[in-house]
Amino acid sequence: MSGTTGAAASERILATISEHLGLEGPLLPILHAVQAEFGYVPQDAVAPIAKALNITRAEVHGVMSFYHDFRTEPAGAHVVKICRAEACQAAGADAAVAAAEKVFGTALHGTSADGKVTLEPVYCLGLCACGPSAMVDGKVVGHVDEKKLGKIAKEMRA
């Protein structure tokens, strides 16, 4: 899929931008809102954002690429983030990551061949006393292991 959208989408982009123009430092809120709307930040959104904020497209690109959260391409239907930070490592995160790669059918940073699951590392979900932890479509899960992840994968593919 390319990062371009149609005419209807460009109206949605403009509406999203104008909702946030009154804020001090509106760029991150705009990028978050566009991503919430489309699932990623389409290439088509960059020029109107730059114009509305009176900055260059390069500056918008620079900000987008600085932060891990912003996507330039749509993710899979489900997003699984698995914590790789120290506290989870102490509780067996390496095994959990290996199990996740196996049950979801993709390596970290990738999307499964059927497009169902994007698997990403995350560095701390603040669930450090019930690790290894994960976040599945925005919902937190503690003590993840192959059994728990397998159940989640099965539900996603049901």
């Binding site: 120290e86 989870c88 560095y123 701390c124 603040g126 669930l127 450090c128 006393a129």
Partner: peptide
């Protein structure tokens, strides 16, 4: 609060 092992703020 990005430090691993911390969750007091949360």
């Amino acid at each position: 609060e990005g430090d691993s092992g911390t969750f007091a703020d949360r």
